[in-house]
Write a protein that binds this DNA or RNA. Structure first.
Lengths: 244, 244
DNA sequence: TATAGTTGTCTATATCAATAGACAAATTTC
DNA sequence: GAAATTTGTCTATTGATATAGACAACTATA
């Protein structure tokens, strides 16, 4: 596991080390509440100066992932990643049963606007048709775990923004429009660095990675009702694929 | 889209800008073969010095994404990402029909070793059982698009390394062991920065992101036959989820 | 053929990142 | 209480990152 570091890559060594420590915690190499190897040992493992390791640790302490105690050691605080299921009947809150005690979806913003080409195609509308855009954040135990942008046909779903604000749930909002069940028609998955807006909304540190899903939800008879792009912080969430 | 930059984050400004330009290309903000805004305009947009923008562009030119021509401008070269389907019958070569004319899987290394806890659980073996590990790289039109590590029960699949080297295909190798069909039992998806080994094997630049799938393949009657971790370069591949 | 617009190169300076070494402060162990 | 272990703080030096300004080289076009 001597994954070495890249110099003059534009990413500082301390950040690379911090990312690797985060990854080790997520993968389970360092157990929760366990002590990290001492700074001199980490410095030797990564082939860097002790001060460089200290910079990495300082960032993670600042982040609330580690706690350093003089004379004792440095300890892991972080909880492990959520495993978020994706399948034909993906619903935000249902999937996290048992993994987080409190989960909810917060409406950050809503807007009515003309559909871009991409959105229009996804929803099967003419380009420039009016759509409602909802910006939401998913939280589990008070921590942000997803950031979604969803588009809906404004003609068919007028007022869904209010319903969403009231119920805090897409599923419940759909029910008000007579849609009891819906399916995921397609999902495309990618990953990238979080942009500035997502850094702020998801409470991430610069350089963080987000998993991105682009999905179309349809009624059981195949009518598209929602086009959505969702960003998940890769350090906190993994996606578990089940039957589509 | 004035996504601002984060200073003293451990990620240099030029790399953040390079990542944003890559993202803009991927999303379609900059069309293929089109000229980027001139350096002075980009510098103003990002609120940095022109030289900083030049560093970002230089990295992307080195990367083969952009081409700069003195006196004319800077142009987008990048081809679009492969869309790699994932479903119950995922096979490397089948999925890329029509997207790449030449595709193959190269065996990089094989080893016989005791199973780690993780691998043993995935394959339903006792921890420490002997397994065969195959390291492979997938290529499309000569460009690396995946990097997989697969484990197989050494008792049942003795010689699969030789079969793989000869046929260059997992599916064909399984057929020699009497397995005509197999299914994907589970897939867990995450993302992280590429480590040094993947950077080399996938011909990536430092800071690149990889999509990681961890999957178990089973025979139609549910017997696990392969445990695999596959890394896809996020800048070249997206994953399209279909029926599992 | 000018001229405007663009990328390429150079010098200089300030700040961040990384290395190196020494020692202090706190905790645990013998 | 003494020794060993570990984190915290300080000084100093080097290289990468970022800013600033000036001008050269090349291209397109009026």
């Amino acid at each position: 596991m001597a994954s070495s570091l890249e110099r003059r890559s534009g990413v500082s060594l301390w950040r690379q080390i911090a990312d690797q420590i985060l990854h080790s915690i997520a993968v389970g190499d360092f157990a929760e509440n366990a002590a990290l190897p001492p700074e001199v040992a980490l410095a030797e493992r990564y082939g860097v100066n002790r001060h460089t390791v200290r910079s990495a640790i300082a960032a993670l302490v600042q982040d609330g992932v580690l706690r350093a105690e003089q004379g004792r050691g440095t300890f892991v605080l972080s909880r492990k990643r959520l495993s978020y299921p994706i399948g034909a009947r993906t619903r935000f809150s249902e999937g996290l049963q048992g993994q987080a005690s409190e989960r909810r979806s917060v409406l950050l913003e809503s807007a009515v606007e003309p559909a871009s080409r991409r959105v229009a195609e996804g929803l099967g509308l003419a380009k420039g048709s009016t759509v409602i855009r909802l910006e939401t954040r998913g939280e589990a135990d008070g921590e942000p775990v997803s950031r979604a942008t969803g588009w809906f046909d404004a003609g068919r779903f007028a007022g869904i923004d209010a319903a969403m604000a009231e119920t805090g749930s897409v599923t419940a909002s759909f029910q008000r429009f007579g849609i009891g069940d819906y399916l995921r028609q397609s999902t495309v998955l990618s990953a990238r660095h979080a942009d500035a807006a997502d850094l702020a909304d998801l409470d991430l540190q610069p350089g963080a990675i987000v998993l991105v899903t682009i999905a179309v939800n349809v009624t059981p008879d195949g009518q598209p009702i929602q086009f959505a792009e969702t960003r998940f912080p890769a350090e906190r969430v993994e996606l578990k694929l089940s039957a589509l």
